[in-house]
């Protein structure tokens, strides 16, 4: 209807231009802000393997000396710090305990909130959101009293367990909320079908529901692992003995060493600190992307 060949060519050209602009915007928004982050990673990697650094940028002298904390005691100036491995195990134990507790509790409570009708359900959900608004700094003193009363303060490893409980408690509300969202997306029919097929309620949860909320569980386990792994304030406040420090606290103390600070080693330490995070993330990310609900399969 009056649409000439030239007109159509013009429209095609315009469509192409629009597509290119979309790509440009995506690059601008998603890639450009990531550049400084990648530069910093690059810097920290090269720094950790070089003996001398020129102008704080250019690495020279390839060496493993900065990584010596892996096989020998850490010494900075006069002070000797605990061996890195027990500290790493402390950190890992804390992170895994937090993550385990959070996943276990929030996957059950998320299911209950999404699926079960009970009195005060809405009020409880609002309360959960409100709960998340409390930063742990406010709770520091109250928690201290509680830890003391429970006999968990100043007891070395047991204190770490106490901290794991607190940290998990702080993470569970939000995790519950996230997982509830995943449960909400599973149609009732699916659950009913499994019941009619002969499954008990528990079996339905195990064989049908759980596999479908796996992405949600992966997300929650990543977040809670990371928050446990990087927890500073609680450990810093409640742990008295050095051998029960976690990595963030130890790194903090080492940065505080003004005179004898060893930048190369700090860089290596920082990198070491990031490794478990990267591994954990890459593993659970696979699950995260395998989303079944809505018909997409991995």
């Amino acid at each position: 209807m009056g649409r000439t060949g030239e007109d159509i060519r013009k429209r095609i050209a315009r469509a192409r231009l629009e597509r290119m602009m979309v790509i440009a915007v995506v690059i601008l928004v998603a890639v450009v802000p990531a550049i400084p982050i990648w530069l910093m990673y690059g810097w920290i990697i090269s720094q950790s393997f070089s003996g001398k650094v020129i102008l704080g940028i250019l690495p020279t002298d390839l060496t493993l000396d900065n990584w010596r904390f892996l096989w020998s005691p850490i010494k900075m100036g006069e002070k000797e710090y605990p061996n890195i491995w027990p500290i790493t195990i402390n950190t890992l134990a804390l992170a895994l305990t937090v993550s385990g507790l959070v996943v276990f509790v929030s996957s059950l409570s998320g299911y209950a909130l999404s699926r079960m009708e009970f009195k005060g359900r809405t009020a409880l959900m609002q309360f959960i959101i409100a709960l998340h608004a409390f930063p742990s700094v406010i709770l520091l003193i109250a928690l201290f009293v509680i830890l003391n009363k429970l006999g968990l303060y100043g007891k070395g490893f047991v204190t770490l367990v106490g901290i794991a409980l607190i940290k998990a408690g702080l993470e569970i509300p939000m995790a519950t909320w996230i997982i509830k969202g995943f449960f909400d997306n599973i149609p009732w029919d699916l659950e009913w079908a499994a019941l009619v097929d002969g499954a008990s309620r528990w079996k339905v949860w195990r064989t049908v529901i759980l596999p479908l909320v796996l992405p949600g569980i992966a997300a929650v386990s990543i977040f809670s692992f990371l928050s446990g792994w990087s927890e500073f304030l609680l450990v810093f406040t409640y742990v008295a003995q050095e051998e029960y420090y976690t990595l963030p606290v130890m790194i903090y103390y080492m940065i505080g060493e003004f005179i004898h600070i060893d930048w190369g080693m700090l860089a290596a330490l920082g990198l070491f600190y990031a490794i478990p995070t990267l591994i954990f993330f890459s593993v659970s990310q696979k699950v995260l992307l395998r989303i079944y609900v809505g018909g997409v399969k991995g």
Binding site: P187, W192, A193, V196, P211, L212, Y292, K297
Partner: peptide
Amino acid sequence: RNIGMVFQSYALYPH
């Protein structure tokens, strides 16, 4: 109850 049921949405297990 030994019942077989076909749901309107079919309710096949997607995974």
